[in-house]
Amino acid sequence: MKLEWIKSSYSTSSGPDCVEVAIPDEGHVLVRDSKTPDGPRLALAPTAWAAFLPYATEH
């Protein structure tokens, strides 16, 4: 299965690099570093991802 990775809207083509997420099914949210797309990935439960988002979007 080919994953559709979505880059953070805070990331631009001129930097800085950010995280990317993919949702392969309803039971997981995958997270990776956009600088190393073939590197490690985190698999999070949707509830854990939802709990993390408010902290990630603070300025």
Rank of each mutant, 00 (worst) to 15 (best):
T12R: 15
T12C: 12
T12H: 14
S13M: 15
S13R: 15
S13Q: 15
S13K: 15
S14K: 15
S14C: 13
S14E: 15
G15D: 13
G15V: 13
G15E: 13
G15H: 14
P16W: 12
P16F: 13
P16T: 13
D17F: 14
D17V: 15
D17C: 14
C18Y: 10
C18G: 14
C18F: 12
C18T: 12
V19S: 04
V19D: 07
E20V: 06
E20C: 02
E20I: 05
E20L: 01
E20F: 12
V21A: 02
V21N: 00
A22Q: 07
A22R: 02
I23C: 01
I23S: 02
P24D: 11
P24G: 03
P24T: 06
P24V: 08
P24Q: 09
P24L: 08
P24N: 11
D25R: 09
E26L: 12
E26G: 10
G27T: 14
G27K: 13
G27S: 14
G27P: 00
G27D: 13
G27C: 08
G27Y: 08
H28K: 13
H28Q: 13
V29A: 01
V29R: 00
V29G: 08
V29I: 12
L30W: 00
L30T: 06
L30C: 04
L30R: 03
L30P: 02
V31N: 04
R32H: 05
R32M: 04
R32C: 02
R32Q: 09
R32I: 10
D33R: 02
D33P: 07
S34T: 10
S34A: 10
S34Q: 08
S34N: 05
S34I: 00
S34G: 10
K35T: 13
K35S: 13
T36K: 13
T36S: 14
T36V: 14
P37I: 11
P37H: 03
P37Q: 03
P37W: 06
P37C: 09
D38W: 05
D38L: 12
D38V: 05
D38P: 00
D38E: 12
G39M: 10
G39W: 11
P40I: 11
P40H: 05
P40N: 07
P40D: 08
P40C: 00
R41D: 00
R41K: 12
R41E: 05
R41T: 02
R41M: 09
L42R: 03
L42Y: 05
L42A: 06
A43P: 06
A43N: 07
A43R: 12
L44Q: 07
L44G: 05
L44A: 04
L44N: 09
L44K: 01
L44E: 04
A45E: 13
A45S: 12
A45R: 12
A45K: 07
A45F: 08
P46S: 08
P46T: 06
P46Q: 00
P46D: 03
T47L: 04
T47N: 00
T47Y: 08
A48D: 03
A48P: 01
A48R: 02
A48N: 01
A48V: 05
W49V: 07
W49E: 02
W49N: 01
W49R: 03
A50H: 02
A50N: 08
A50Y: 05
A50Q: 02
A50L: 10
A50I: 10
A51N: 06
A51H: 02
A51P: 05
A51Q: 06
A51G: 07
A51F: 09
